[in-house]
Design a protein around this nucleic acid. Sequence first.
DNA 1: ATATTGGCTGTATAGCCATTCAATAAGTTT
DNA 2: AAACTTATTGAATGGCTATACAGCCAATAT
Lengths: 213, 213
Amino acid sequence: MGRREIKEFRRIQLIEATIDTVARKGFTDLTLADVADAARLSRGIVNFYFHSKEELLAETLRYMTQEYEEAWREATSRAGSDPVTRLRAMVDGDFGPRTSSRKRVAVWYAFWGEARWRPEYLRICQEVSAQYFAETRLLVEAIATAGGYTGLDAGLVARGLNAMIDGLWLDLLIEPKDVDRNSGKRCCYQFLAAHFPREFAGLVPLPGAIAAA
Amino acid sequence: MGRREIKEFRRIQLIEATIDTVARKGFTDLTLADVADAARLSRGIVNFYFHSKEELLAETLRYMTQEYEEAWREATSRAGSDPVTRLRAMVDGDFGPRTSSRKRVAVWYAFWGEARWRPEYLRICQEVSAQYFAETRLLVEAIATAGGYTGLDAGLVARGLNAMIDGLWLDLLIEPKDVDRNSGKRCCYQFLAAHFPREFAGLVPLPGAIAAA
DNA sequence: ATATTGGCTGTATAGCCATTCAATAAGTTT
DNA sequence: AAACTTATTGAATGGCTATACAGCCAATAT
């Protein structure tokens, strides 16, 4: 590896070490020595690549939001142009093994827990949240129009879906015995089916349907 | 104040000082000196009433969960026996000015952000979450039965409502410009109206209805 | 070959903070 | 009011950790 590439490589290496370390020790107990160890580099390395611990953490959050946004944009893109398929792709992505692993979700919540007191975190979270909301809102509107559903506030439905996803992630953390990635997904399907029965009802098995099958 | 009462009084005084201090400075920047100052007591006081900082924080979380549970149990109790009214009382409570003030919600999220790495926090959160879920599930079931709604998974609906509330609280923190206590409430009403139109539709004004009124 | 650059290391340091504790104040009992 | 108990203080302690930095070494340029 030439000197040219190494700079960016190390940055990412340290950011990923930070994610791993937050996942392993939490936010409060995280030290720069831990991060350096996780990256298998020397103790002083973090302050060589970042001005401060605070900056490392903010960059880590930025990295995660970018990764997340790329993931759902790619998922919708693969899903084609049908808004129903696209919205479903977003939900599926949010409960896919990579995005909603216990590790990843724990790290999201660690950052959200601090966001209130760190304007930089807040800004970053607002950005990703606004993008996601805008897209879901658009899709909800398109589905409503195409399906002839009237008297429905697309903003409210989109907001509700977004909130439900975040809340289910919390359940993955707190009640992993009652909520897993699959039941989280079904929960969202059911919400969508309640508003758009023709488009989503097939995804929600009726109670007892499994036993009957 | 006699010596008998003082012990309990100081405990609560310190716990409430802790809530205020977390609200003001966040979890990471909280020091016992801050808490002592907030309580207007001397620096060493916390370790006289609690074995450690960790214990103070766990007790603070326990205090908040008890307060929350008492609040919604009282709200449903006041609401009488009709499950529709009862469920609505729970939602209204969750978006009432006391429970969902930015300050309180920020503190909840601070604890949730740490819960993954503190088994004690996890246990406490699981407890309150399970109680709340059990009650909402019961009410959803009662509403479905009374209203003749079939083919509806009460557990999934209750789970979705719980998750939506938690997620909307996050929005109160992160996007206070787009989500406030009122729109949060309306969001939940809309979810309930989607499943139980006859029982809840009246609470969700149609788009444009306000302008038309 | 030699010089130069720049990534990287590991130790030194200074500040912070939870916890302890000896001293003191306030209240209670006899 | 003396003896005793309990609450409270605030300074001292010790451990921890972010940050700074002097020097080392490998890669590149000349």
